[in-house]
Design a protein around this nucleic acid. Sequence first.
DNA 1: CTGAAAGCGCTTACAG
DNA 2: CTGAAAGCGCTTACAG
Lengths: 342, 342
Amino acid sequence: MKSAAPRSVRATGRATLADVARVAEVSPMTASRALRGEPTVDAALVQRVQAAAAKLGYLPDPAARALASRRSTHVAVLIPSLTNQLFVELLEAAQRTLRSAGLQTLIGITHYDPAEEEQLLREQLLHRPAGVLLTGLEQTRATRRLLAAEDTPCVTMMEMGSGPGTASVGFSQEAAAAAMTRHLLQRGRRRIAFVAAQLDPRTLQRLAGWRSALTEAGRFDARLEWREPAASSVGLGAQLFEQIVAASPAVDAVFFCNDDLAQGALLAALRLGVPVPGRIAVAGFNDLPESAHTVPPLSTVRTPRAAIGQRAAELLVARIRDPARAAQHQDLGFELMVRGSS
Amino acid sequence: MKSAAPRSVRATGRATLADVARVAEVSPMTASRALRGEPTVDAALVQRVQAAAAKLGYLPDPAARALASRRSTHVAVLIPSLTNQLFVELLEAAQRTLRSAGLQTLIGITHYDPAEEEQLLREQLLHRPAGVLLTGLEQTRATRRLLAAEDTPCVTMMEMGSGPGTASVGFSQEAAAAAMTRHLLQRGRRRIAFVAAQLDPRTLQRLAGWRSALTEAGRFDARLEWREPAASSVGLGAQLFEQIVAASPAVDAVFFCNDDLAQGALLAALRLGVPVPGRIAVAGFNDLPESAHTVPPLSTVRTPRAAIGQRAAELLVARIRDPARAAQHQDLGFELMVRGSS
DNA sequence: CTGAAAGCGCTTACAG
DNA sequence: CTGAAAGCGCTTACAG
């Protein structure tokens, strides 16, 4: 009796492209092209190959594909933190979009540090990602060089970039903060403090927006500026609110760079018996889901982070599929949410 | 003049194992073994290989490695949601631990659906992950079969599993909820409602813990049980609290299955002028960071999710490195946080 | 439009 | 303990 057909030394049990080609009676190359949708393949052959693949339950091996083509189906998504809900929503939207395009998300947390971002990128680049999604515009020179050298498409999220060859999806942090500041001025507030925590680039841009709006109105006073390097949180907001009220009794509004701080401020006001907005107005930034339910409901700026994550991922997918496609910058805007606290 | 040394058709510019072997004057196999720390290699050769690798800046190609060994350095981490902060912390702790072990996190969101978990796993398994981290114990038969068939180590997080061959890191959801319920009873509360949102297995286990503690005390009343299929959130908690107070004026405590609900309840109480804990006590579950700052501060159960993520990842890494290692179940416990709301 | 050849950069499996 | 051979499962690059 004849022995079984020769098998590879280390069979995996999965159908391979060669199996599909055999069943479809074409060469592996034609099967490969048909399955990837290359337009050059004869329609009848495409049919046969697809039928064979379906029959065998063929699924391409990503490692083999990556090794041969020098591109994986991974996308590196680098965000500063998972503690700030903002970035969680950004990540979730991006990963949903990437997954539906057949791409896997490789997540990296930079802790707001460009050097750490660079290091993460070096690690991720070993996997030859199809593309990269970055937060903000503050990259090291080496990061830009690595990306260019590997010729890996990249889209940045949150801020508005400029210039050709780069792509960004975001909104103007500065304009958004200025708009909220003007709203407070319109409501008759005269001494509007700004609290900047974390001191990342976006927070500083918001600070600049607040400053320019106050300057424009002739109301800027450096003593109204509170800088706090710690990460924003409800607890920190409560603590800072107490400090500000104690240190500057004349302050009649506090604009926080993030909603969680403002939420904490409202709790502190409740505890201290400081009427909001009666004696002091409170405003936040981002419109996190809880902010509609605080007492009083929080006035804030709604930022389109889910839309940013999605659009950035879509743009990246488009650039992966067509590298010739021109990069672009998309401004997704913001919305003032005026509620009870101002 | 002689032409340059023959180069591969598609050079990548990166140093390869062959380059390292050449410089170290050993065979590629010896270089491979030395770099992976196989104990059989002569110490002097290991030295030479490591020096050569360092000199060339050699970094192994993950795709080639995965293709040849049929194992990638990815770990699939499947969690139900990113909307619930709990899982974000779980993910963050796990990914930090995995990264320091040289493993990449492949994230998947199951939306609390075992069928979706199975589908995600099928996709991830194509990448031949070194291991898998799953949330909870509710897997489909096919999920278990896939894992067994691929011989991929797996550790589940959050709940306490049992039985040999499986590994879990978590705590008893039921015991934790029972402990909080007993605390409320001890404080003299007699009509303690329980609010279960999302209705995922862990929530139902907490419900069971509440029920058994009340039954034990002769205080169980089915009308005190509130089931809500929607996802928990601050807004939902506020809404449910209003409903409960209106529907059951005799209720003197509400125990929510998650802190965000309880936070919303406290805000609703403030708005409605319902004294907490004077007229009604409020308790939560998880001890999310904001809960120490609510008005009044929230009594809750502190759950060790960061420790779970870390320990589960460590256990998985250990099982990846030593497949013979016995699986185990680790109970990381919980802690009652009694604060002002009860 | 299709295919035979070569190769991607590693590791398995086998010899010695 | 070390290495030559073969192969992992694809795609690139080249012919025709």
